[in-house]
Write a protein that binds this DNA or RNA. Structure first.
Lengths: 199, 199, 199, 199
DNA sequence: TATGAATGAGTTTTCATTCAT
DNA sequence: TATGAATGAAAACTCATTCAT
């Protein structure tokens, strides 16, 4: 997925993730990242060609961590939960994991030069979510198997719900998160029941 | 709602809205705004005390425009549409109206010094949406009137859907917007039918 | 001594004196002066050609006020006081009269373009002091009349004492002013006695 | 007394002393200092965090030089000179040593943010002068030892004389310096004789 | 006489990047 | 691999001055 890094580069990357989770690309300071990593600014360039490359490396690392978290969430819950365990995890994760904050920031506000690469990365994240949700959906409700368009529709809705929750986290630091989650979960569950009934 | 501006200040404000819709606060350039408005950088300061004040003035203008758009959308459609006409309008509006792009950017990524003012503004926007949706909901389905908690739940879900669509616009410039809208609309509609049935 | 000014110009001048007493030429702001005078910055130029001219006008006014104060001090005290009533007055005057603070600031720190004019003005002030002190000295001690060089020497010393007190005011806001005054007055008085004895 | 500086920082500091001796804090230009030191403006910030820090560093250096000069002057003259060798040295020193000009300017006109530090520095200078003068006084006239209040009074007067000479240097570039020095020295000497006689 | 608007020149400061060591 | 020093470019902001009204 991404290049192996030397221990020093790894340390820089961690500092960068933390910094980039609080300052978007343009207002992030390489100096602060370097100091946080225990080196001087000029030394960064021994590890990364420039700001773009460091940003990308940090993003890929953050992304990998979040992908792993998705995997775990879906692995440790029964299919009947339909991905809402992951939704539930987002609130505390957002406050505790800079990787999530960084990934969302990077997905929403991109420097033009990195737009393509960042979009692709975030698409990977969404695709994984879609796959896991779809799998859980058909496992929990095998009756849907003959209706792939319904599966698509519900998983598309699920992705929409996740993004909606992300937004709540980003712009209000999580207030009212639970209310929105409950309302949207209710929507999906009842809609699903309705749909299953009418099959 | 906001102070009247002189013609020059108005021109600057329009240029600022356009610029701020493409560059968040920290990476926006007063120089570029000035040039776009046909004046020199120093002349800005005859109209606005500093970057913060210009940003706020531009934000309030953009917000007013978006509030007006919400009003119109809900006014020109039957209640049975349940706010989905507004949702539908978002895709083209996002590409054509810098006011919407700016409002979203300002709501998601805020300079610390303006956080409170910007949050309040965006809350106004959300509150208006909630009010209009609730009104349409009870108009279209009077049976819900005795169940205020359901009204709250559906309108909370509606706001979540709107935010979710915003995100699709922001991070992919609208690709797959229609798919997400269809899926979430389906969710709400079927869930609503289900709920109405079981009353 | 200086041109008559219109009432508006007079008001500006007063505001300028106050402002210049707190900010030396280079860091003074015409805008602040204008606002303090109740007009806009551009209107200053209807009364004074530029910053230099306003500065000079204000200086000349301040100087005139201080000259008048010197006159009064010497007029209202017996010659035997030998100018120490004026010295004594300096401490409270410095805190209360912006004219004194401005005159000293302008005498010590001058913009190159006004050096000559300001120096001349301050020389007038010193010359007046010298004249008054000399007059008092010969009045109090007629025995000195045949020794003009002694009169010169003592009045030169007196000017030195006044400047020394000014400095104490300028750089420590008057702490220890009384101590210095007492010490220098003692010096002059005993020296004078000694000199008179040996005539 | 103050931090050791790298050779480059030292060069910058020298340029700063020269510049600050001619322009007080607010009207000094970092650009001119940099150019005088043979570098570009931005490079200053590799050596000093900001204007304040550079100013303070330069001031401390200038102060140290002046303290050293005081030491030397008193060391190389017999006590009977009573500090007037130092007074004599001031005239040429003022024209030749930017350190003296800078120290006086910084003592009289201070940026608010540095007031405390600069005052302390200048107090050190005055204290050293007082100590040296007192020592010379009692060495030359042991009869004063039992009268500490007289010693205080004469040294206070001495400091007043030094300040008075400074002023002459500052506001007239030294014209009439000799006259003032002679007059004030006469004052102190005759007053001292008178006092000694009457013990 | 007053002023709103405009501006060129200047200010301090930050930053990503380079390069010799 | 690390870094001190240097720098061009850019940032926000201030100011004295001008000019049409």
């Amino acid at each position: 997925m991404y290049a192996e890094l030397s221990p020093s580069a790894e340390r820089i990357c961690q500092a960068a993730i933390l910094h980039f989770s609080e300052h978007h690309y343009a207002s992030a300071s390489l100096n602060e990242i370097a100091v946080a990593a225990g080196i001087r600014k000029a030394s960064l360039y021994a590890h990364f060609k420039n700001k773009d490359e460091l940003y990308l490396a940090a993003f890929n690392r953050a992304l990998a961590v979040e992908l792993e978290h998705v995997q775990q969430c879906f692995a440790e819950t029964p299919a009947s939960q339909l991905g809402f365990h992951y939704c539930q995890s987002l609130a505390t994760r957002y406050t505790q994991a800079p990787t999530l904050r960084f990934m969302l920031l990077a997905a929403y506000i991109q420097p033009a030069s990195l737009k393509v690469a960042l979009d692709e990365g975030y698409e990977d994240y969404l695709q994984l979510l879609r796959d896991r949700f779809s799998a859980a959906l058909v496992t929990a409700h095998p009756a849907l198997v003959p209706h792939p368009s319904l599966i698509t529709q519900f998983s598309t809705a699920y992705l929409g719900i996740v993004d909606s929750l992300h937004v709540k986290l980003v712009y209000t630091n999580g207030q009212e998160f639970q209310g929105r989650l409950a309302a949207l979960e209710m929507l999906l569950i009842t809609s699903l029941q309705h749909t299953l009934h009418s099959l």
